[in-house]
Structure formats: structure tokens, C-alpha cells
Amino acid sequence: MTDINLVFDKGLNGLAGFDFGRLVFTEQISPFYKDYDEKLYLNFPRNIERVSISFVQGLFFELTSKIGVDKTIQNLEIISDYTDLKDKIILRIF
């Protein structure tokens, strides 16, 4: 199990952009998540209320490319104060 607390500027309440998603993966997830067969817990800070499709696609691009969409979703646990954020992230992985 890998548990990661994502960090974003406190002034942000939404995340957008494929390239920004890839950057977040590269800087905040990839250094700690090496075994793609284990569970990944991503903790989103309270100030993040929404994410764009492009951000989600960028964030999970490497995982879906290597292990596929189904396995990425199976291994992923999104932790957020906003239930709809969790749901939207899962629905936007493809």
C-alpha cells in the first residue's frame, strides 16, 4: 500500500490540464509508487473541490499506459472531503 498526501497551492480549488496532471504524477506520485500491483491511496487536500478531465487523464496517463484502466481503477483509492470529487476522478480515468 502506498499512501500519498498530494500538495497544491492553497489558493487553488480546482485542477486542470493534461500537462499539469503529468507533472503532479512525476513529482508527487512516481517517486513513491513503484509497485503498480499494490493499492494506491491519494489524499486530496480540502481546498481541491474539482478536477478537469484533462488533469485526470494526465495524472493517470503512466498508470493506464502500463497496467490498463481497469487495474488502475481497481488499485486506486481517492481520499477527499468531497464525495463527488472521488466519483468524478474515477469516471474520468480512460
Rank of each mutant, 00 (worst) to 15 (best):
T2G: 01
T2D: 07
D3N: 12
D3I: 07
L6E: 04
K10N: 14
K10L: 13
N13T: 14
N13M: 15
G14A: 15
L15T: 05
L15I: 08
A16Q: 09
G17R: 01
F18H: 13
D19W: 12
F20W: 08
F25M: 03
F25R: 01
T26H: 05
E27R: 02
Q28C: 01
I29A: 01
I29C: 00
F32P: 00
Y33M: 05
D37K: 11
D37W: 02
D37G: 09
L40A: 02
L40V: 11
Y41N: 14
L42R: 00
N43W: 03
F44V: 10
P45S: 08
N47S: 13
N47Y: 09
N47V: 12
E49K: 13
R50G: 12
V51L: 04
S52W: 00
S52D: 03
I53Y: 12
S54F: 03
V56L: 10
G58C: 00
E62A: 09
S65C: 04
K66I: 05
K66H: 07
I67P: 00
V69E: 07
T72Q: 00
T72W: 04
T72H: 02
T72A: 00
Q74L: 09
Q74K: 14
Q74I: 12
N75I: 11
N75L: 08
L76K: 07
E77T: 14
Y82I: 15
K86F: 01
I89F: 00
I89A: 01
I89V: 05
I89N: 01
I89G: 02
I90W: 01
I93H: 00
F94E: 15
F94M: 09
